[in-house]
C-alpha cells in the first residue's frame, strides 16, 4: 500500500517520513545508532499475527541487541508473561516528553537516546507524539515507526501494510539482527 497516513485525515505537513522499503534497513539503522530505545504500545500485545503477536518479534529484537524496551499503557504485563522484563513502563505521553529531553535516557546513567523505534501505540496518539518528537527532539533523536501503518511524523516508517506483510517485515528485521 502507498505511503500515506492510514487514517485519511491525519495530514502532517510538508516534511514526511521516508518509507522503509526494505526491512533490512532497520537493522542497519539500529547498528549505526549509539543509544537506541524501543517504545512499545498496547496494540503490540493485542494484534494477532496468525498465532503470534508483535511483541514476540520485539522480544527477539530486544534480546539480540540489548536495546532497552519501554512499554506504554499496560503493555508491560504481556511482556512479563512472556518472560521478558522491559526496562521501564510509563504512559506514552511520559516517554514522548522524556525523549524531547536531550539529557534523558532510560537508565538515567548513559548517553541520551539517538534513535527510537516505535510500535503499538494507538494510531492517532502515535501520530501526535511523533509530531512532538519531530519538532522538539529533532536535534538529537531520529524516530522509526515499525507500526503496520504509515506514520508520517517519524523520520522513517513502514508504508501501510497487510498483516502478512507486516509480520514478514518484522520477522526479517529480527532475523537480520540475530545474524549479526
Amino acid at each position: 500500500m502507498a505511503a500515506e497516513p492510514w487514517q485519511r485525515y491525519e495530514i502532517p505537513g510538508p516534511i514526511k517520513a521516508a518509507v522503509i522499503k526494505n526491512p533490512e534497513m532497520v537493522s542497519i539503522l539500529l547498528k549505526k545508532a549509539k543509544k537506541p530505545v524501543f517504545i512499545v504500545g498496547h496494540e503490540a500485545a493485542e494484534i494477532d499475527l496468525g498465532g503470534k503477536k508483535p511483541i514476540d518479534h520485539i522480544i527477539r529484537i530486544a534480546r539480540a541487541t540489548n536495546i532497552p524496551v519501554v512499554t506504554t499503557a499496560h503493555t508491560m504485563a504481556e511482556f512479563l508473561k512472556s518472560g521478558f522484563k522491559p526496562a521501564a513502563s510509563m504512559t506514552s505521553m511520559d516517554i514522548g516528553n522524556r525523549l524531547t529531553d536531550p539529557e534523558w535516557s532510560v537508565s538515567g546513567e548513559d548517553d541520551p537516546h539517538d534513535l527510537a523505534l516505535i510500535l503499538g501505540m494507538t494510531y492517532y496518539v502515535g501520530f501526535v507524539i511523533e509530531a512532538g518528537l519531530k519538532s522538539f527532539a529533532f536535534n538529537h533523536l531520529k524516530t522509526v515507526s515499525l507500526d503496520r501503518y504509515y506514520q508520517p511524523h517519524c523520520n522513517w516508517s513502514f508504508p501501510n501494510l497487510s498483516i502478512e506483510e507486516w509480520d514478514r517485515h518484522l520477522t526479517i528485521i529480527a532475523q537480520e539482527i540475530e545474524k549479526k
Binding site: 502532517p12 514522548g96 516528553n97 509530531a131 512532538g132 522538539f136
Partner: peptide, 11 residues
C-alpha cells in the same frame, strides 16, 4: 507541569 506539545498539524 511543563507542557509537552503534540502538534496535530505542522502548519
Amino acid at each position: 507541569y511543563k507542557p509537552f506539545y503534540l502538534p496535530l498539524c505542522d502548519l
